[in-house]
């Protein structure tokens, strides 16, 4: 009887350890796969970002502007710029600079 009480928990512990180890192994595999996927996506993201940076470099943007918009895009002067603030739930629009020099 004593032997049964002694060996039963040991056998249960061995089984529990085996099951836990097995499921941990599966989790490890999943984590590895996810990490690999993240790494691939990160590489792809960085290369896409590089492409984006090349395509949106100021030189390219000026080329696009000349090609697609000709003279339609006009640079704003500071006297035409306003600041918008919310005061007591109301929009307050002010000139960015006062040119009375």
């Amino acid at each position: 009887m004593k032997k049964i009480f002694f060996f039963t928990p040991i056998i249960i512990l061995i089984f529990a350890t085996t099951l836990t180890k097995n499921s941990t192994k599966k989790l490890d595999k999943q984590i590895f796969e996810i990490n690999e996927n993240i790494r691939i996506l990160e590489d792809r993201y960085e290369l896409t970002l590089l492409d984006y940076n090349i395509l949106t470099s100021p030189k390219k943007l000026i080329e696009y502007q000349k090609f697609y918009f000709e003279e339609k895009l006009i640079q704003k002067k500071i006297e035409n710029l306003n600041t918008i603030t919310i005061v007591n739930d109301k929009l307050k629009i002010e000139k960015m600079v006062n040119i009375d020099e």
Partner: peptide, 11 residues
Amino acid sequence: TAGFANVKGYE
């Protein structure tokens, strides 16, 4: 001596 840099609004 620097009138050409007197861009309005930037002091």
